[in-house]
Nucleic acid binder design. Structure first.
Lengths: 337, 337
DNA sequence: GCGCTCTACTAGCGCGCTCTAGTGACTGGG
DNA sequence: CCCAGTCACTAGAGCGCGCTAGTAGAGCGC
C-alpha cells in the first residue's frame, strides 16, 4: 500500500546480500564480523552489495544468536549535569572495549526500577548505575541478577562494583583550605539523601571539629534550588558564616546566585566551595572553587569494572575509590575582617 | 564458578517457565503478552513460576519474532538541559502508546551519525532527533531509511516530521514586551549555528525594525559561555543596551552572571529575556523572563508523529509548530532612565 | 599417485520468542 | 444425538543472525 516504485519491502537481510553476491549467508556473516576466511575480493563485493541494498545488521538477531550482547546499560538521571559528564566518559571507553552502550533515564515521572527493567530487557549484559537512590537491598538483589557497577555511591557489602570519589578526602581538603585562609565559621549545605551526601556530611563534621571549630549543617540537595533556599536561610539570620561548603556544584551555584543578588561578592564577603567540578564551574565568571571529581576516570573505571567482571565471573565486586582534588578558583579567599 | 548452590545457569527462558508450570511455551508467551486464551488460574501459576525462576522476557528475541520492535530511538545531546526536559516528556507518552524508548547521546566525542547508527542497529523503528545539527541532506536520507521526527528545527522539504516552536512568534513577543516597557536599545545574542537560531535571529531583526529601532546581533551559542562572552563584549563598550534577548536560557544565564558580577541588577540596569524556559529559569533567584517552549507538548507531539507515521506508512511527514508563550518574570522591567 | 595442509567457502542448527493453524473437551440448541 | 460454538491449550514454523562442522579444490612434498 506504499507509494509504489521503491516500495521498501521490509529491510534487507543477510540473505538478500548473500543472494546478490552469489555466496552463502554464512560467508556474508563472516565478512561482517571481520573474521578470516573470505577473500579480499569477496569482502569487497559483499560490502558493495550491502551498501547498495542499504543492508544493516540487525542487532536483535545478532544478540540472540551469539549468547552475548556486549551491551552495557547505563542508568542516568536526566537533569544531573555531572552525570552527563560521566556518560560522556563512558562512551569512548566502552567503544574501546568493543561494547555498545544504551542509556535509560530516570526522571520524576520514571523511577529507577523502570529504567533498569528497560535496560535489562534490552539484553544489556551489565548495568552501570549513575548515582542510584535505590535501597541497598534492592541494589544487592539486582547485583545478583546481573553484573552491576554503581558510580558515586559507597556500598560496602552489596554485590555490586562501587566506583566513587573519596568524598571524605575531598571535603577535608576543602575545609582545610578554608581554615588555612583563616575561616573560623564554615557551614555545610548537605545533599540530603543523595548518594555520597552522608559521607560528605560526616567528613565535614569531622574536619571542622578537628580544627576545633563549630559545625553546622543546613539540609540541602544536589540542585540549585536547594542552594538558594540555604542562602535565603543564612541571609535571614543575624550573622553570616564566612564560608560555605556546598554538597555539590549545582547547590553552590544556587548559593552564589542568591548571595550575589543580595549584593555579596565572592570571596570578599563570603567564600564558597562546591563539589564535582562540573562543566559549569569552569566557566570564567562562575569560577567556582570546588572539589574536582574525575568524571572521565570514574566512567572509565565503571566500564572497566563491569566488563572485566563480565569476562571473569568469579571476580568479586570491588570498590574503586578515586582521589578528588581541590581546585582553587575564584570563590574562596580570606574571610572578611 | 560462582558461589555454588544457586549457580545461575544462564538466564531462564520461556521454556523453563513452561516446563515448571507444565504447559506449552506458547501458552506462557500468550500469558506474558496479556492475550486472551488462558484461564486465570493458569495465568497466576505462570506468573508465580516466572517470579520464582526470575524469568524475564528477552526483548531481543521478542523483537526478532514479531516483525516490529515498538521501540523509539531518541538522540540527545547530553549537555543540553532543555533536551533533558524533552526526554522527560517523551517517556510517559511513549509508554502510553506502548512504545519502548532507547536513548543515545551525542557528545563532543561522539558524533550524531554514531548515535543514530546505535539506535538503528538496536531495532528502533523510529527515531526522534532532538536538535540535530546534521545537514539537511543527511537528515533527508535518514528520513528515507526510517521514520524520523526532528524536534526543534524547521526542515521544510526534508522527509522527516519536524516539531518545533514558532521561534519567530516567541522572539516577536519578547521584543514587543521590551518595547512596551519602553526599551529602544535591544540587542540579540544569537545561537550561532544551533537549530532554530537562524529563525530567531531573523525574527529579532524583523521585530525591532518593525518598531523602527536599530538591530544588533552578537554571535553566540546555546551555552553559558557564549552568554558570558557576549556580556563581556557589551561591558567593554561605551554604552550598554537597555535590554538583551538571548538565544536561549543558558545563554541568558551566562549574560546574567557576567553582568551581575559587574554590579548590574536586573531589571534595574538592564533587562534580559531568555528562550526555552528550562527548569533553571523557574528558580526563584534566577527568575528569568523567557519565551516558554512547551517541552512536554513538543515531546508528546514528536512521539505521536513518529508512532502515527509508523502505523500509517502513507502519511507524509508533517511540520508541527507549537506556540511559544512569553513568561514575564523578574528580569525585565522599564529601562533605566 | 598419496596424504597432507591451507584457503575459501557452505549446510544447517539453534538463540528465545511470536504467531498461525490447529486439537480436544465441553457446552447448548435443535 | 449431532453439530456449531466456545474455551483452554499445543505444534511448529519462522524472525535474522552466529557458529560449528564440514567440503571442495589448490598446492606441495615425497
Amino acid at each position: 500500500m506504499r507509494e509504489g516504485e521503491l516500495t521498501s519491502r521490509s529491510k534487507p537481510t543477510m540473505a538478500d546480500v548473500a543472494a546478490k553476491v552469489g555466496v552463502s549467508r554464512a560467508l556474508v556473516s563472516l565478512v561482517f564480523r571481520g573474521q578470516p576466511g573470505a577473500s579480499q575480493e569477496t569482502r569487497d563485493r559483499v560490502f558493495a552489495a550491502a551498501e547498495e541494498l542499504g543492508y544493516h545488521p540487525d542487532n536483535a538477531a545478532r544478540l540472540l544468536a551469539r549468547g552475548r550482547s556486549r551491551t552495557l546499560g547505563v542508568m542516568v538521571t536526566v537533569h544531573q549535569s555531572f552525570q552527563a559528564d560521566l556518560v560522556e566518559g563512558i562512551y569512548p571507553e566502552a567503544e574501546r572495549l568493543g561494547y555498545d552502550v544504551l542509556l535509560s533515564a530516570t526522571a520524576p515521572t520514571r523511577d529507577e526500577a523502570k529504567a533498569v527493567e528497560a535496560l535489562l530487557s534490552h539484553r544489556c549484559e551489565a548495568l552501570i548505575l549513575l548515582g542510584p537512590n535505590a535501597e541497598r537491598s534492592a541494589l544487592d538483589e539486582l547485583g545478583r541478577r546481573a553484573v552491576v557497577a554503581v558510580v558515586g555511591r559507597r556500598l560496602p557489602g552489596v554485590r555490586v562494583d562501587s566506583i566513587h570519589t573519596a568524598d571524605t578526602k575531598g571535603i577535608r581538603q576543602a575545609v582545610d583550605h578554608l581554615v588555612d585562609l583563616g575561616h573560623r565559621h564554615i557551614v555545610h549545605v548537605d545533599g540530603g539523601k543523595e548518594p555520597g551526601s552522608a559521607d560528605r556530611r560526616r567528613a565535614y563534621r569531622a574536619a571542622v571539629r578537628r580544627h576545633k571549630l563549630p559545625d553546622r549543617v543546613l539540609p540541602g540537595a544536589h540542585d540549585e534550588e536547594a542552594g538558594m533556599a540555604a542562602a535565603r536561610q543564612l541571609l535571614s539570620e543575624d550573622s553570616l558564616p564566612t564560608a560555605v561548603v556546598a554538597g555539590n556544584d549545582r547547590c553552590a551555584i544556587g548559593l552564589m546566585h542568591t548571595f550575589g543578588r543580595a549584593g555579596l561578592e565572592f570571596p570578599r564577603d563570603i567564600s564558597i566551595v562546591g563539589f564535582d567540578d562540573n562543566h559549569l564551574s569552569h566557566l570564567s565568571h562562575i569560577d567556582l572553587t570546588t572539589v574536582h571529581q574525575d568524571a572521565a576516570g570514574l566512567a572509565q573505571a565503571a566500564v572497566h569494572a563491569a566488563t572485566s567482571r563480565l569476562e571473569d565471573e568469579s571476580r568479586a565486586p570491588a570498590e574503586i575509590v578515586l582521589d578528588p582534588k581541590l581546585v582553587v578558583r575564584g570563590t574562596t579567599g580570606p574571610p572578611p575582617p
